[in-house]
Computed example of a mutant assay.
Amino acid sequence: MVDGQADRPGLGPVLTVPNLISFARLLGVPLFLYLFLGTDHTGWAVGVLAVGGLSDWVDGFAARRLKQVSRLGELLDPLADRLYILATLFALTFKDVVPWWFTFLLLGREAVMVLCLVVLRILGHGPPPVHYVGKTATAILLMGFPMMLLAHFSSAARSWALPSGWALLWWGIVLYWVAAVFYFIQASVHVRAGRAAAASAP
C-alpha cells in the first residue's frame, strides 16, 4: 500500500471524545429527518441542522487537541458529513426548499467521488486523505442548508436568509467540485506511486 495514513491497519480506539462527537453527529441525521419530515417542529429541525453544521470541525479539533486521532475517527468524520449533506439535500428537495437541479449538481459530484474510490479499491488502494478544501466546502454547505430552511419557513427572515443561503450554497458547491478535482489528482498520484513501487520491486 502506498496511501500512508489512509491504509493503516485497524480502526484504533473506539470510545474516544472525538469518536463520541462523531457518533452524536450521526444520530443527528435521523433526528433531523424525523423532525423535518415527520412532525411540524420545523424550528427544532433547523436547530438540529445548524448544530450539525457548526459542529463539523469539533471532532477533528478534539482529535488533534487531545491526541486521540484514530482510523475509526478518520472514517466517521467524512461519513457524518456526507450523511448530513445527502439527508438534508433530499429532505429539502422533497419539500421544494432546494431545486432539483442543485440536487443533481451535488449528486453528480458524489458519483464522481464514488467512482474514484471504487477504482482505487480495485487497484488495491485506500481512499486518499480528506482535503481541507473538501472540509471547507462541507462546512459551507452545512451552513447554507439551515439558511435555506429558515428562508422557506420564516417570512420575517426570508429577505436576508434566502440570499445568504444561496450565496453559501453556490460557494459550497463550487468548492465541493474543486475538492473533487483535488481528490482525483491525489488518487492519480497514489496509483502512479503504486505502479512505480511495483515496477522497482525485485
Rank of each mutant, 00 (worst) to 15 (best):
G4Q: 10
D7I: 05
G10A: 02
L11G: 02
G12N: 05
G12L: 03
V17A: 13
N19Q: 10
R25S: 01
P30H: 05
F32S: 03
L33P: 00
Y34L: 14
F36D: 00
G38C: 07
G38P: 06
H41T: 04
H41W: 14
G43D: 11
G47R: 10
G47E: 13
G47H: 10
A50V: 13
V51S: 02
V51E: 00
S55I: 11
W57T: 01
V58C: 11
D59S: 09
K67R: 15
Q68A: 07
V69S: 11
L76F: 10
D77F: 03
L79K: 04
A80P: 00
Y84F: 15
I85P: 00
L86V: 15
L86W: 03
A87P: 01
A87V: 03
L89D: 02
L89Y: 08
F90C: 09
F90W: 12
K95W: 09
D96K: 12
V98K: 09
V98L: 14
V98W: 08
W100D: 03
F102T: 04
F104M: 09
F104R: 10
F104K: 03
R109T: 06
A111I: 15
A111M: 12
M113P: 00
V114C: 01
L115S: 13
L115G: 15
L115M: 08
V119G: 02
V119H: 14
R121L: 12
L123S: 01
H125A: 10
G126M: 10
P129R: 09
P129I: 08
H131E: 10
H131W: 01
H131P: 00
V133A: 13
T136P: 04
A137E: 06
T138K: 04
L142R: 08
M143G: 14
M143C: 14
M143A: 13
P146C: 10
M148H: 14
M148Q: 15
L149A: 14
A151M: 11
A151L: 03
H152M: 04
F153H: 15
S154N: 15
S159G: 01
W160V: 12
L162S: 12
P163N: 09
S164Q: 05
G165M: 12
W166Q: 06
W166G: 07
L168Y: 06
L168G: 03
L168D: 02
L169S: 00
I173S: 15
Y176K: 09
W177E: 06
A179V: 02
A179W: 01
A180F: 01
A180C: 14
A180S: 13
V181Y: 07
Y183N: 08
Q186S: 14
Q186N: 11
A187P: 08
V191W: 11
A193M: 15
A193Y: 03
G194L: 12
R195Q: 12
R195M: 12
R195P: 00
A196N: 11
A196G: 00
A196E: 15
A197C: 08
A197E: 14
A197G: 04
A199G: 07
A199M: 11
A201H: 14
P202I: 06
P202H: 11
